[in-house]
């Protein structure tokens, strides 16, 4: 499989990264270089192999249903590049 410039444009759109048209070719080449290299995994017989889900065998810990935090409006909005009256503010979203 290899990616063309349209694919790069599409992926960049999905990833919300603006890419200039004059960058597409170089990016496509780079990605194709990496992709053709990783495609050697195709040689490995993985029939019946379960995909790895965790790096180490362990049971996931659960938390209790307790309110342990809150009233952090100042803290969570302190770094916001756009903010007003305790809200985050962004360019208008049309639904």
């Amino acid at each position: 499989m290899s990616v063309d410039q349209n694919t790069v444009r599409h992926i960049a759109r999905l990833a919300r990264i603006a890419v200039r048209d004059d960058e597409l070719e170089a990016l496509a080449n780079e990605l194709n270089g990496i992709l053709s290299w990783v495609e050697q995994l195709g040689e490995v017989d993985t029939d019946g192999v379960e995909p790895m889900t965790g790096a180490v065998e362990m049971v996931m810990k659960w938390r209790e249903d307790k309110v342990t935090t809150g009233n952090l409006q100042k803290e969570v909005t302190a770094n916001a590049p756009g903010g007003d009256d305790g809200f985050f503010v962004v360019p208008k979203v049309v639904e």
Binding site: D65, K66, V67, Q73, V76
Partner: peptide, 28 residues
């Protein structure tokens, strides 16, 4: 439930904006 699915912030309805938001909920 009292708290959120993956954080310890309250689920109560109608609070002031961003007051029931943990560091996890704000994805810091």
């Amino acid at each position: 439930s009292n708290a959120k699915l993956f954080s310890g912030a309250s689920t109560e309805f109608g609070a002031e904006p961003n007051t029931q938001v943990s560091l996890v909920d704000a994805a810091l």
